[in-house]
Design a protein around this nucleic acid. Structure first.
Length: 246
DNA sequence: AAACCTTGCAACCGCAAGCGA
DNA sequence: CTCGCTTGCGGTTGCAAGGTT
């Protein structure tokens, strides 16, 4: 590779793809001594690798709880929503997807989702010029486009590109600032539709907002508020009102 | 069959945050 | 407070495999 080597101060270290033997040495060592102390781990384990490389290999590949490949539609849907909310905060997104690593999600985003969303954004932009629709109508339209109801009342996630694009055409068209200021009529309507209690959300904002915008956003993610079908949240613009807390 | 192109993904790099001395 | 070290994160690279011409 045409780049400066990792941990260039230390010579004689292996680089590039890991061998099965190296993997086994690392697994055995961590099973015995636990994670951490990456700087000293290679020497202690007898690996000719830098600590960074060992850490990365363990976290992204060797950990026993890692799921690999076959990202489900549910996971994909969650990745898209979290990315809309948090941007390129891959580690935070990965934290909401058990068994998935930040690297895998980042790769999936760049190789699959970003291309798909790029094409859907053109359709989305056209819809920005449409008249605003009220929340109830929007929700019904969204459900019609996104979900197909089966005989037992359950729903399925979108499977075709058309359906996924349709989900992106849906916009909440509301100011989240209104929620924080206690727009009770709106909140009760939306709570009824989505099953989320904006009273709790307000409390969450007040509690975590005082520590700063990022803490508040992360707290909201932790508490599943991102499950709202608000696909177009943006950390800086839509949560801008939280700046007042910082 | 061979050359070229595209895609997926593991791995590397630089930077910044956290933490202890 | 500052300095140095370690760890974690996001961006980027380059290899290998599969697809296309």
């Amino acid at each position: 590779m045409g780049r400066k080597p990792c941990c260039s101060k230390e010579e004689g270290l292996n680089r590039g793809a890991w061998t099965a033997i190296e993997d086994q040495i690392l697994i055995d060592y961590i099973n015995l001594h636990g994670e951490g102390k990456w700087r000293t781990l290679p020497k202690a384990a007898g690996l000719k690798r830098c600590g960074k490389s060992c850490r990365l290999r363990w976290l992204n590949y060797l950990r026993p709880d890692i799921k690999r490949g076959n990202i489900t539609l549910d996971e994909e849907d969650l990745i898209i929503r979290l990315h809309n909310l948090l941007g390129n905060r891959w580690s935070l997104i990965a934290g909401r997807l058990p068994g998935r690593t930040d690297n895998e999600i980042k790769n999936y985003w760049h190789s699959v989702l970003s291309k798909r969303l790029l094409s859907s954004s053109q359709v989305k932009e056209a819809n920005r010029n449409d008249d605003k629709i009220n929340v109830i109508d929007a929700k019904l339209e969204h459900e019609t486009a996104l979900e197909s109801e089966s005989s037992d009342g359950s729903f399925t996630l979108p499977s075709s590109d058309e359906e996924i694009n349709a989900s992106f055409n849906f916009r909440m068209d509301f100011e989240i600032g209104e929620i924080s200021n206690g727009s009770e009529g709106f909140a009760s309507d939306f709570t009824q539709l989505c099953g989320y209690d904006f009273t709790d959300m307000n409390a969450e904002i007040c509690e975590y907002g005082k520590y700063g915008k990022n803490d508040c956003c992360e707290a909201m993610v932790e508490n599943d508020y991102v499950e709202l079908e608000a696909n177009n949240f943006n950390l800086d613009s839509d949560f801008g009102f939280l700046d007042a807390f910082s």
